[in-house]
Design a binder for these strands. Sequence first.
DNA 1: GTCTATATACCGATAGAC
DNA 2: GTCTATCGGTATATAGAC
Lengths: 202, 202
Amino acid sequence: MARAKFLNSTDAVNTIINEAIPRFAKAGFSGVSMRDIAKAVDISTATLYHHFPDKQTLYLRSMAQAFADKAEGISTVLAEKGTPQQRLTKFIARFTKLMSQDSHFRILLQRELLDGDETRLRLLAEQVFQSQFANVAELAKELAPNCDAHLMAISIAGLVLFHLETTPLRQFLPGGHAEHNDPDVIAQHVTMLLLKGIKGCG
Amino acid sequence: MARAKFLNSTDAVNTIINEAIPRFAKAGFSGVSMRDIAKAVDISTATLYHHFPDKQTLYLRSMAQAFADKAEGISTVLAEKGTPQQRLTKFIARFTKLMSQDSHFRILLQRELLDGDETRLRLLAEQVFQSQFANVAELAKELAPNCDAHLMAISIAGLVLFHLETTPLRQFLPGGHAEHNDPDVIAQHVTMLLLKGIKGCG
DNA sequence: GTCTATATACCGATAGAC
DNA sequence: GTCTATCGGTATATAGAC
């Protein structure tokens, strides 16, 4: 017994984090126990504590990993060529697809907006969003030179994210259909709304 | 000792729920213990369990109360007179102010979008949003007869709510200022964006 | 209706053998 | 590096006196 389950310590840590991420996304920090995670990886809690000094550290490492994975993807969603309108259209399509592909990142982001302290939020902003947020704000400036780029960038991201966020509620609201959860449908609606306003969405 | 702390059972229940709501909003279901709530109301846990059969029931009653309080407020935010543009402008101003006035409702809504099961989400949709959601969708139809009213209503609410939701993150993102958290600033930005699109927000 | 006391289970975290 | 065993604390929930 007690045979090594992992190739090395790095392998063990990665395996643990990859099991922890979806669980923290689903139930939040206080909704997941170290025993849950240990059982999922099929190790004892003592072994888990050998790899991570405490639960808080495991949580932070899991967040950092989930966010690092996604920051990489986000850095490639801004198109370089075309008119500002074309680049906005392309960005929204890519961003919507990226955010709906796996929901763990988006859900962890939502949880951090609710529960994150200043340190974690600053990390999230600086290491995940800052660079691309600035690029989107820049793009907004090109489309509307006198607009508040910060507000506009938040609006662009918010339109996409809120449609994904309300997916479980949508079916119970008037006019809700399954097709409304299709990333392409959402992206097209958001793009139209941004470029033409409510009147252009006909 | 053991003197009655409340006028009657209804008074006790209301007091408990009013203490529970902000705590569930701040820390979520699993982040608040029955002991926490009992201590806040200055009763024993046994007394708390005399008024509520279990924690789940107390949580559901607290949500129902918080949502009922707000549903009342929401039902008055749609103006009856003026052009569709004027009514949209008025609605966004009122809705933004209502949602930012006390944050408990909005935060509990965010938590339910993350953690709510089908029963709770259906209740939330039907008893809180349905009626006003339909009215907003109707207003969207007036402004853009061929648009998807459901998507548009989600977008309108989402623009406002996401700006409030990202308040704690905003200060760490490029261009973020405290004025961006002002309900009037948010409402004006959202209204402009909806009525004129990104180009009108100059 | 409110209490003290407690049953029972789970929590985070650790000791110490191998 | 992994385990069994367990510590000390807290969780939900209940029993029974007043």
